[in-house]
């Protein structure tokens, strides 16, 4: 003899016979499984290291308008004539050198290059990130240019 259908209180058909404590245990088990699964599927984390050169972009660009040599110029090195060009002319045109050696007999300039020409790169950082060429100028005892070389460093 079957029960009348109206005695079933659960609104979901077929679920009326589920044991409540059993259902709670099942839910707990499922929750625990999901938690364990979530822990296990955790992935790798990436670490970003700070850039070695934290200067803002504006500082790394050619310093326009500061001195003639800081503007890109295709004829920047036109003044360099071995046996003729004097130290004063070089310093007036290119500014102070990045480094000197042998009692300022050898001068070094760091140059950048753009489609408009060469420009003197200010030496604020130790690296060569913004430098394209190293200009080496060897002067004689009278301060006249003896030999020079444009070395491509990058």
């Amino acid at each position: 003899m079957e029960r009348p259908r109206e005695e079933i209180h659960c609104p979901i058909e077929g679920a009326a016979t589920v044991n409540k404590p059993l259902l709670a245990r099942t839910r707990r088990s499922t929750t625990a499984s999901l938690l364990a699964f979530a822990v296990l599927v955790a992935g790798c984390a990436t670490v970003d290291q700070p850039s070695p050169d934290p200067r803002p972009l504006a500082e790394t660009e050619p310093q326009l308008g500061k001195a003639p040599a800081y503007r890109p110029d295709p004829h920047l090195l036109g003044l360099l004539r071995d046996g003729e060009t004097k130290r004063e002319e070089i310093v007036l045109q290119l500014g102070p050198p990045a480094r000197t050696m042998e009692n300022e007999r050898v001068l070094f300039y760091r140059l950048g290059q753009s489609p408009q020409g060469y420009f003197v790169q200010e030496t604020r950082s130790e690296g060569w990130a913004d430098v394209r060429h190293s200009l080496v100028l060897v002067l004689d005892e009278q301060g006249v240019l003896q030999r020079h070389s444009l070395v491509n460093v990058r």
């Binding site: 099942t26 088990s29 499922t30 499984s33 699964f37």
Partner: peptide, 21 residues
């Protein structure tokens, strides 16, 4: 049937954890 269902759920959960490991 409910007991069997509970066992099924338990096994499914345990299997998922084991598979993940």
């Amino acid at each position: 049937f409910s007991k069997r269902n509970w066992f099924c759920w338990s096994w499914a959960g345990a299997s998922a954890v084991l598979a993940s490991c």
